[in-house]
């Protein structure tokens, strides 16, 4: 087949054309992303605090050793993992439900699609402030609703207690980013041929059975992409937590990115901050590998 292609009257072979098509993307990434990334790796091997430019020196893996012995780092890692697992899992479930609602044909579907996207269209910092107001212990509408419904006896400071602060942050994140998940999954649902469902219905398969045997397997590649990118984002969560709680109460919601941000830009400790960033990168890399292993094992067999 390759031979057939090459005999056609075009200047480029298949692989030459392939490289040509990939080139612009690689150029962008090489130009913009590669240098900062390499730079960050390099800085992470130095003691570099901007307040003391004269004391800069190469320290090898010292920053990493310090970080791994640091309680605060461990606390931030646990918080980040908790945040990521719970919010991504909820987003996947809700996102799939909403995507299926958006995929069904009925009047007003366009409105439903636009409505479902609203949360994602609001700038993150604004939506974080909005939730801060909703959770407010005095004028927050959440307290008002729950007290009116007699679910809680009196107003609570949702962001002020270790028990509820993380949950509050997760709810705000799920609200904001489920549309992202839903939209990706919707696009995946749309390329599943209708005939498969029609045939299954003729065979008498229940809706649930169709979901399990048709929708889920065919949606697997899309789910993989959606999960990877949501996890990347959730694991690096910054703005939302920073605005909602600033890492409090008592650092119980501080995530790795918040910690890295404080280290880099508040403490001006570029050595440690870079090392933290590299660690975040490595964690995400591992998570992605796991996803790809689990979810693409099936599709490569096809």
């Amino acid at each position: 087949m390759n031979a057939v292609k090459r005999t056609r009257r075009q200047g480029l072979s298949e692989s030459q054309f392939g490289y040509l098509m990939v080139f612009p993307a690689l150029l962008c990434i090489g130009l913009i992303a590669l240098y900062p990334v390499v730079q960050t790796f390099w800085l992470s091997l130095h003691r570099l605090r901007l307040q003391f430019p004269d004391m800069t020196k190469f320290v090898g893996l010292q920053n990493y050793i310090t970080i791994f012995g640091d309680d605060r780092f461990i606390n931030a890692t646990i918080n980040t993992v908790e945040f990521t697992i719970v919010s991504v899992a909820l987003e996947l479930v809700f996102g799939l439900c909403i995507a299926m609602l958006m995929n069904k044909e009925y009047k007003g579907r366009g409105l439903m699609r636009a409505a479902a996207l609203v949360p994602w269209a609001i700038p993150t910092t604004v939506s974080a402030m909005m939730w801060k107001f909703i959770y407010n212990d005095q004028l927050g509408v959440l307290n008002d609703i729950l007290v009116r419904l007699h679910i809680i006896p009196e107003y609570k400071a949702w962001l002020g207690s270790e028990v509820t602060a993380m949950g509050a942050a997760i709810v705000a994140d799920v609200w904001k980013t489920t549309p992202f998940m839903a939209l990706l999954l919707l696009a995946g649902l749309q390329v599943i041929p209708r005939e498969l469902y029609e045939a299954a219905t003729v065979d008498g398969a229940s809706a649930w059975r169709q979901f399990i045997t048709i929708t889920l397997p065919l949606l697997r590649p899309t789910i993989l992409v959606a999960l990877i990118f949501r996890t990347l984002d959730a694991f690096r969560v910054f703005d939302l937590v920073y605005v909602l709680t600033g890492g409090g109460p008592g650092n119980s919601t501080e995530t790795l990115s918040v910690y890295a941000y404080k280290t880099l830009f508040r403490n001006m400790d570029f050595g440690m901050g870079s090392a933290l960033s590299v660690i975040i990168f490595v964690f995400i890399f591992i998570i992605s590998l796991i996803y790809i292993r689990i979810l693409s094992s099936g599709s490569s067999a096809e």
Binding site: N2, E14, S15, F17, G18, Y19, M21, V22, A25, L26, I29, A33, Y35, P36, V37, Q39, T40, I228, F229, L232, R236, F238, S257, A260, Y261, L264, F265, F270, G273, S274, S277, I280, F281, I284, F285, S288
Partner: peptide
Amino acid sequence: LHFKGKNIILSLVLAVSMFPGIAIVSP
């Protein structure tokens, strides 16, 4: 298309988005 290094390119592309933005902004 068929050409060598596809998986490497895909993972390289993905790796770019794994770095926290705050680390990249200064360089």
